[in-house]
């Protein structure tokens, strides 16, 4: 009889949890694909940044976080929000600008926050959330709370001054924060190799005297393992870690992007050969954790949750004009 391969997971995760992560990855993909379609049809206005193809970084990095743990997110943040326990109905309602949205229709795609679930919010300023994550970690340190903060940012943000200032401060104070760089190879149009002369963003950790780890960001098992080790280290009071997860955004930077800066062949290669969901599916099947049928059922459940979210969003009320002037000051 053929022996099943076991997952190379460091932390112990139940089969149910792993299947839940598979569902979450589909939910992230369906959400962003749905948003893409709504933009194309003109049903959502403004702008948006999709993380299709990057599902493993968000789901993997948040897999072991509790509601007490915090994240800071980015302009490409829908996946982070879902992975941190956000509800897709309230997220979609936000993109529709409705009162039932996470921000009552005032924040939109780039500013979804869910403080009750530890999502300190998505920042539209590249690198803007990095010092903020350090502040969140400082609170944990000063109040002697045992939560950790996972700070998501991209390869582009690692060239901002705020990255340098924040990582250095977290390092000298041994703060419980994990700097999680989703290197999806491109800023808006600039390839990472044109914008820095180091091979890995994680190499920069040496400049701050902290560990730097490179993982395949499309392999959720690797992402979970690296984040687990970094969060455990942080909780022990040993300070921050810089994780770099190599991944790829399948879509353009934002809604209008002709993608002249890369080839269709490159995109096809990542889609066909390095799809993070497909990969996790193969892992689950090979390890005998789920059957093909079960995984199909899980996928359909994600689809249905998304359909219900859309219905909720479309049927939700618009804010009254009185809302314009509220919430400026506490």
């Amino acid at each position: 009889m053929e022996q099943t391969k076991t997952l190379k997971l460091v932390p112990e995760l139940s089969d149910e949890k792993l299947k839940g992560l598979y569902q979450q990855m589909w939910l992230i993909r369906y959400f962003d694909e749905q948003v893409d379609q709504f933009f194309a049809k003109g049903l959502i206005h403004g702008t948006t940044h999709l993380a299709v193809g990057q599902e493993a970084t968000a789901a993997g990095a948040c897999a072991l976080l509790s509601d007490e743990d915090k994240i800071t997110s980015t302009h490409r943040g829908h996946g982070h929000s879902i992975a941190k326990g956000g509800r897709v109905d309230k997220m979609m309602a936000e993109l529709f600008g409705r009162t039932t949205g996470y921000c009552k229709g005032k924040g939109g795609s780039m500013h979804i926050a869910d403080l009750d679930k530890g999502n300190l919010g998505a920042m539209g300023i590249v690198g803007g959330g990095i010092p903020l994550a350090v502040g969140s970690a400082l609170t944990a340190h000063m109040k002697k709370l045992d939560y950790v903060t996972v700070c998501f940012f991209g390869d582009g943000a690692s060239n901002e001054g705020s990255f340098h200032e924040a990582v250095n401060m977290a390092s000298i104070w041994d703060l419980p924060v994990v700097f999680f760089c989703e290197n999806n190879q491109y800023g808006m149009s600039g390839n990472v190799s044109e914008m820095t002369n180091v091979e890995h963003i994680a190499d920069r950790s040496a400049a701050y005297g902290i560990p730097g780890v490179v993982v395949d960001g499309n392999d959720i098992i690797e992402v979970i393992n690296a984040t687990y080790e970094a969060t455990e280290r942080a909780r022990r009071g040993e300070g921050p870690t810089l994780i770099e997860a190599k991944t790829y955004r399948w879509k353009g930077h934002s809604k209008s992007d002709a993608k002249k800066y890369r080839t269709r062949e490159e995109e096809k290669d990542w889609r066909d050969n390095r799809d993070p969901i497909k990969r996790f599916k193969e892992d689950l099947l090979e390890a005998g954790i789920a059957t093909e049928d079960e995984l199909e059922t899980i996928k359909q459940a994600a689809k249905q949750e998304m359909d219900e979210a859309v219905e909720f969003a479309q049927n939700s009320p618009m804010p009254s004009l009185d809302e314009l002037l509220t919430d400026v000051y506490a």
């Binding site: 300190l120 010092p131 903020l132 502040g135 969140s136 609170t139 401060m169």
Partner: peptide, 12 residues
């Protein structure tokens, strides 16, 4: 960095 750390600690 200081300003951002202030914002993040205030928010939490």
């Amino acid at each position: 960095g200081i300003a951002g750390a202030a914002v993040g600690s205030a928010l939490t």
